[in-house]
């Protein structure tokens, strides 16, 4: 068989597997960028010694726990606190002043993974004196990871780099005040959690989550194809109040989407956008 035929066959097997996941369990990966999905599936195939992708399909249909394993494989949960410190600097400088105008703040972290990003935001809001008027919604499609987020327990190994990120992100306090250290892990301070609501939400299949002043969705859209990205941008546009803020990951952009024009740039470099105040654009 030629390489191109082999590749095409694998693509067919992959499509069928994603179709099976959708039909059986309702999770829709059919509009994800394929390269990453394929790598994860092939990795599972090799680890569990399946002869080919098709052989996984049968197991997937019969065995929920195998589906759960695949779901974890497919939802790439890699994250950190104050990831991209310059983004948080821009938040402090460019976005916080805008948020001060609201008596009450609704913030949505979509694709929050194990919560590091949400706790980073909570810390930043505390330091800026806005935490008490904020309600933070932290959502992800993956319930296993959401439980981790809710627990707010992180490995101590990563604390050193988080502390550095915190300082580079403009943190002025002592970072260790925000957690309680145990032998091999830290527990995030309870007061950070008070205004956070963790819940299950799938950007590929679920709808508007409520009216928001700030939406943070970082390093999630890189896994989606153009059509799914557009769906999510429309969802965010609908959810934001006029003048509301949308933050994407450093390699993501709304500029190629068909609703690009309703967003103005707050920071081009850090991918911070504002839903236009002029109604005629919408």
């Amino acid at each position: 068989m030629s390489t191109s035929e082999e590749v095409e066959n694998q693509q067919i097997e992959l499509q069928l597997l994603l179709q099976a996941i959708y039909l059986k369990y309702g999770y829709d990966f059919r509009s994800y960028a394929k390269a990453s999905v394929k790598r994860r599936i092939l990795h599972r195939m090799t680890t569990d010694q399946f002869p080919n992708i098709s052989a996984m399909q049968h197991r997937l249909l019969e065995d929920v726990s195998f589906f759960e394993t695949l779901l974890l494989d497919l939802s790439i949960n890699v994250t950190e606190m104050f990831r991209d410190p310059t983004f948080y600097l821009a938040l402090r400088k460019e976005v916080i002043p805008l948020l001060r105008n609201y008596p009450f703040l609704k913030i949505w972290h979509a694709g929050c993974s194990s919560g590091e990003e949400v706790y980073s935001m909570a810390i930043l809001l505390k330091e800026e004196g806005l935490y008490d008027r904020a309600q933070i919604y932290a959502t992800d499609m993956n319930q296993v990871i959401l439980k981790k987020a809710r627990d707010g327990i992180f490995s101590i190994n990563r604390l050193k780099s988080y502390t550095m990120n915190y300082q580079r992100a403009g943190g002025q306090e002592s970072f260790s005040d925000y957690y309680n250290a145990h032998y091999d892990h830290v527990v995030m301070d309870k007061s950070l959690k008070e205004n956070i609501l963790f819940s299950d939400h799938n950007l590929a299949t679920d709808g508007v989550f409520g009216e928001m002043h700030l939406i943070i969705c970082r390093n999630v859209l890189i896994y989606f194809n153009r059509e799914l990205q557009d769906r999510v941008f429309r969802l965010f546009a609908e959810s934001l109040t006029l003048g509301g803020i949308m933050c994407l990951g450093s390699k993501e952009s709304v500029r190629l989407s068909n609703i690009s024009t309703i967003f103005d740039d707050i920071s081009k470099e850090e991918k911070i956008y504002r839903k236009s105040l002029s109604l005629d654009k919408i």
Binding site: A33, K34, A35
Partner: peptide, 14 residues
């Protein structure tokens, strides 16, 4: 990463 349509995609996977 390269997609089959010869466009790039990025990932923050481990």
């Amino acid at each position: 990463m390269l997609e089959t349509d010869r466009s790039f995609s990025l990932s923050v996977a481990a």
